[in-house]
């Protein structure tokens, strides 16, 4: 069934339905939207929308590779960026008024940071895991830190560096659905079918 009308709101709901209803524990879902850059006749996958759920136990991986000093410095950097983004967003939004910094002072986890920097990324003609999935019209499912670390795709290696153990890219109409988890999750047709059902639409972002 093709769903002809589609907007940002329903895209968010579909991403949420995909991982909130899953048996497996996914940390996030991202929809990479394809568009054609006219002057170069290239297909580019850019940020469409994302839903961040988080991992079950965020303390599990704490301090694995970096020193305590590095951890503190990195957290300071992340919190500073978050603080700036918060003020930019609340400056744009009319009724954002009573800003407390509680949320910013809380540790910014590796998966939160990975999700956040994903918003700045895009993939051209078959590059990166999402681009490769789109180009080959077939899903890419990478499970295990060794496989992620050994991948030719920088995004997979980056994901591994931020503690993800599974990353999946499933092509759909108009883009690619990506899911990531800090758990080991093996390929299932159930997830593919869900993506096929939820993301078979004609996009209209307004």
């Amino acid at each position: 069934e093709t769903m002809p009308f589609f907007n940002q709101e329903s895209l968010q709901q579909r991403l949420q339905a995909l991982i909130d209803g899953a048996r497996e524990s996914w940390a996030y879902a991202i929809f990479w939207q394809s568009s054609v850059v006219d002057f170069a006749s290239q297909t580019v996958l850019g940020w469409g929308d994302g839903y961040y759920k988080g991992e079950e136990d965020k303390n599990k991986r704490r301090g694995s590779s970096s020193s305590a000093a590095n951890f503190v410095a990195e957290q300071e950097h992340r919190k500073k960026v978050l603080r700036e983004l918060n003020s930019l967003i609340s400056g744009v939004q009319a009724s954002a008024g009573n800003g407390t910094d509680d949320a910013v002072d809380e540790e910014v986890t590796d998966t939160e940071w990975f999700f956040l920097i994903s918003m700045t990324q895009s993939f051209v003609n078959g590059n990166g895991l999402p681009g490769l999935a789109m180009y080959s019209s077939s899903p890419i499912w990478v499970t295990g830190t060794e496989k992620l670390a050994a991948s030719q795709c920088e995004r997979a290696r980056q994901a591994q560096g931020f503690g993800l153990q599974t990353i999946v890219c499933i092509p759909s109409a108009n883009g690619v659905v990506e899911l990531g988890s800090t758990e080991l999750i093996f390929q299932s047709s159930d997830l593919m079918n869900k993506v096929k059902y939820l993301f078979n639409f004609n996009i209209d972002m307004g």
Binding site: Q12, G48, D49, G50, Y52, N86, L88, G91, A103, E106
Partner: peptide, 26 residues
């Protein structure tokens, strides 16, 4: 921020808002 596409801006606002909710409910 005005140069940031609307989709990313909306996603970012939603992410920050949900983060606040997670911290408050923790």
């Amino acid at each position: 921020l005005s140069a940031v596409p609307q989709a990313r801006k909306a996603s970012l606002a939603r992410f920050l808002e949900r983060r606040k909710e997670r911290v408050v409910s923790a």
